[in-house]
Amino acid sequence: MPRLTHQTPKYRKHRASGQAFIELSGRRHYLGPHGTKASHREYDRILGEWLAAGRSNTYGVPADSITVVELIARYLSFAKDYYGTPKRGTYNNMRLGIAPLKELYGRTLANEFGVLQFKAMRQRFIGEDLSRPYINERMRQIVAVFRWGASEGLIPAVVAQTLAIIPGLRKGRSGVREPSPVKPVDLSIVEDTLPHLSTVVAAMVKFQMHTGCRPGEVCGLRPSDVDRSGDVWEAKLTQHKTAHHGHQRTVYIGPQAQAILTPFLLRGAEDYCFDPREATEEMRAKRAEARKTPISCGNRAGTKRQKNPKRQPTAKYTTQSYGKAIYRACKDNDIPGWSPNQLRHSLATRVRSEFDLDAAKTLLGHQSIGITEVYAEKDRKKAIEVARMIG
């Protein structure tokens, strides 16, 4: 089989006509008389555009002949490099969200996808009994694909502009199901769950209860993030939900949360505080302790482990694995189920009732771009005071 290479297409000569040409994705682009400065300039221009387009197979295809499936393929290639490929990241959300578009309109010319096709897609989602906000999010994903295509010159801009002005489904006026709101979890249920969790996951839950951080923030916390110079510690996170908007996120850690976190800071500065491998070792140690067969009989500890298991504990919890640990503990012990994100709602409710809305907003990291430095400092002091008292 021939080897796949990424060599730059060459400046070539068509002997019959004496014209120079470059061949890209099976299409010849003639440059003018071979050997002239003008043909070399044209070669440089076309090659530069092709490289800027990511060596796309659709380069040079007229905008009125690109199909929806080709547009989707180009967009996903861009999104994979731009967003990365975590399981719950933007790339996979987009890939799953626009799959029905490819299924229904994959062979349709992209410039023929208009209002009727857009509303037909939306009606399909309504027929699947999806919630109104989720349907609107799916439709925004479709618009994003066409907007990107227009920005790359793949389709006429009017296509994306037309789709963008179609209003979303309005609450109470569309007859579409509304999602159930996320409510605070009863802290007595959390207390009932804690004994059935590993030491690591129980500490994560308690830390969230006192700080109101997001599940992803507690999963990604590292010792290097934590500034311990004050009586209230501050964890300044570089990776969080709104980092791509240029927002800063600080988790304020009061005395109670500090006591929970301190044992998990005794590791490398760049290691994750809460390590799933420690929970796995704890689970195995408990199983060995509960062993009824004498050690002299049966299998020795560790002999039944696979040499190369498909799934191995990693150095960091994900929001999914963290949530599943809580889900299993609740299910196995007949405890009402709850999710880690509900802990934020519980803390927000408490802070708002005991203090005020501004304190809850800052403590939970709900900041907007237009907040002035003076206003942010005022909120910061308020959040530190709250953390000192209840954190």
Score class of each variant (00 low, 15 high):
residue 202 A to C: 14
residue 182 V to I: 15
residue 282 E to I: 06
residue 175 G to E: 05
residue 280 T to C: 08
residue 224 S to T: 04
residue 348 A to R: 07
residue 216 G to F: 02
residue 169 L to H: 15
residue 277 R to C: 02
residue 78 F to C: 06
residue 114 G to D: 08
residue 329 A to L: 14
residue 367 Q to R: 09
residue 169 L to A: 15
residue 257 A to K: 12
residue 105 Y to M: 04
residue 177 R to P: 08
residue 134 Y to K: 00
residue 11 Y to F: 13
residue 378 K to L: 11
residue 270 E to L: 08
residue 279 A to I: 06
residue 97 G to I: 02
residue 217 E to I: 11
residue 2 P to I: 07
residue 276 P to L: 08
residue 335 I to W: 06
residue 22 I to Q: 10
residue 246 G to Y: 14
residue 213 C to W: 11
residue 120 A to E: 09
residue 51 L to I: 03
residue 171 K to Q: 14
residue 384 I to F: 03
residue 64 D to T: 03
residue 316 K to I: 08
residue 76 L to F: 10
residue 150 A to D: 08
residue 121 M to K: 12
residue 191 E to Y: 03
residue 141 Q to P: 09
residue 391 G to F: 03
residue 261 L to H: 08
residue 261 L to M: 11
residue 129 D to G: 01
residue 287 R to P: 00
residue 153 G to E: 14
residue 299 N to E: 04
residue 6 H to K: 09
residue 40 H to S: 00
residue 143 V to L: 00
residue 12 R to N: 01
residue 134 Y to E: 01
residue 164 A to F: 06
residue 83 Y to M: 07
residue 197 L to R: 04
residue 153 G to L: 09
residue 101 L to M: 01
residue 87 K to A: 10
residue 143 V to R: 15
residue 225 D to N: 00
residue 371 I to G: 00
residue 113 F to R: 07
residue 379 D to L: 15
residue 242 T to F: 05
residue 288 A to N: 02
residue 62 P to W: 04
residue 217 E to H: 13
residue 80 K to W: 11
residue 134 Y to A: 00
residue 276 P to Q: 04
residue 139 M to E: 09
residue 330 C to R: 13
residue 246 G to C: 14
residue 7 Q to V: 08
residue 27 R to L: 06
residue 258 Q to S: 13
residue 147 R to E: 10
residue 363 L to F: 08
residue 128 E to L: 00
residue 128 E to W: 01
residue 248 Q to G: 07
residue 190 V to T: 13
residue 390 I to E: 03
residue 52 A to I: 05
residue 71 L to N: 10
residue 160 A to H: 09
residue 341 N to P: 09
residue 232 V to G: 03
residue 243 A to P: 12
residue 25 S to L: 05
residue 120 A to I: 04
residue 96 L to F: 11
residue 221 L to Y: 02
residue 11 Y to M: 01
residue 200 V to W: 12
residue 123 Q to D: 13
residue 26 G to S: 10
residue 217 E to M: 06
residue 295 I to L: 12
